[in-house]
């Protein structure tokens, strides 16, 4: 039986998630794993926006901020369970993306980048300044999601870090599954057609405005869920989650791994989450090294690490 690339991607991801813990010497690695999955989820959302639809955003951490503070504020003020707050935050982010997406997706290239960047910074400013609600720059505590309690009730005997690792692994697989399904769906085809040529897509009857908006809203929901999950994982949140650098980090992950593929997204998230931990030995040169790596990838592997490597390997085989 011949498996589709989509199934292969999911199998590879699942096997990696399942096997990686064998090599983990301490619970710290489970946390890194969980963070990789959180970032991976957000970057998969960006792949839908960048890779499928060919639009750019430098402000997606803004949606993560909305998701994170929804998970923090709604349980506190509305008495919602954190799990419900997570979905409420996603709905809020999706709705906001829908509202602001209509006007700003008319922009192209640099102008779109700057508009989305402005949105992200606005969210950051609001979170920073509404101190009586958000605690300002000092941040605020987030209620426990209760994963550990569920795990204990099931008698799994896992530590908190492990529970989060497996839970986030499942969420990432689900996110990847949905994104891969979208890729081959009629909507996905329309998105990719407007990536290649907006004019051609419009000529063929693709509702360009609607599909751009769809991609923007979906990626906002991914970012929002990632933000909520990060807040719940940490049990604490500060406005940094919505910061400009956080947006840039995600864009870098997407571009480094290969902005067009789901596996590339997870690959980029893995490298940029794990690398700073490996580079703490060179603490002062960490940013220098990261910058150098990204420059080299951009110059020599412009399609991103994974697609370029895959291409080279396939060429090697055909020779």
């Amino acid at each position: 039986m011949r498996l589709s690339p989509r199934t292969w991607t999911l199998i590879i991801l699942a096997v990696l998630i399942a096997l990686a813990p064998v090599t983990f010497p301490s619970a710290f690695y489970f946390r890194i794993g969980a963070l990789i999955f959180v970032n991976g989820l957000a970057v998969i959302g960006l792949v839908i926006l960048f890779g499928y639809a060919g639009q750019i955003s430098l402000g997606h951490a803004g949606f993560a901020g909305i998701g994170a503070y929804s998970a923090a504020l709604m349980p506190m003020h509305l008495g919602l369970h954190p799990a419900l707050a997570l979905f409420a935050g996603a709905v809020l982010s999706g709705g906001l993306a829908f509202l602001i997406g209509r006007p700003i997706l008319r922009l192209k290239g640099h102008y779109l980048a700057v508009a989305t960047l402005g949105f992200g910074i606005l969210v950051f400013i609001v979170l920073n300044n509404e101190a009586q609600l958000t605690g300002g720059p000092d941040g605020m505590a987030v209620e426990d999601l209760g994963l550990r309690a569920v795990s204990d009730a099931l008698g799994l005997g896992l530590r908190t870090a492990e529970v989060w690792y497996w839970f986030m692994g499942l969420v990432l697989l689900l996110g990847a599954f949905l994104a891969l399904n979208l890729h081959t769906s009629p909507t996905g085809r329309s998105l990719r057609s407007l990536h290649n040529s907006e004019v051609a897509a419009r000529t063929l009857g693709v509702d360009v405005v609607r599909y751009k908006l769809t991609a923007f809203v979906i990626s906002a929901v991914y970012a929002s869920l990632a933000g909520s999950l990060q807040a719940l994982l940490n049990g604490f949140v500060t406005p940094d989650v919505a910061g400009f650098l956080h947006s840039i980090e995600w864009v870098t992950m997407a571009v480094l791994g290969g902005a067009a593929t789901v596996l590339g997204a997870v690959f980029g998230a893995t490298i940029l989450t794990a690398l700073p931990q490996a580079l703490t030995v060179f603490q002062e040169y960490e940013h220098l090294l990261l910058g150098l790596i990204i420059m080299l990838v951009m110059i020599f592997l412009p399609a991103g690490l994974l697609p370029s490597l895959g291409k080279t390997l396939r060429q090697g085989e055909s020779i």
């Binding site: 590879i12 990696l16 690695y29 890194i32 893995t270 490996a278 490597l309």
Partner: peptide, 17 residues
């Protein structure tokens, strides 16, 4: 082959301690 390269990089995270 994809699997292999991805594994190699996740090994980056495993620093001896």
């Amino acid at each position: 082959m994809r699997l292999k390269s991805t594994l190699a990089v996740s090994a980056l995270a495993m620093m001896a301690a």
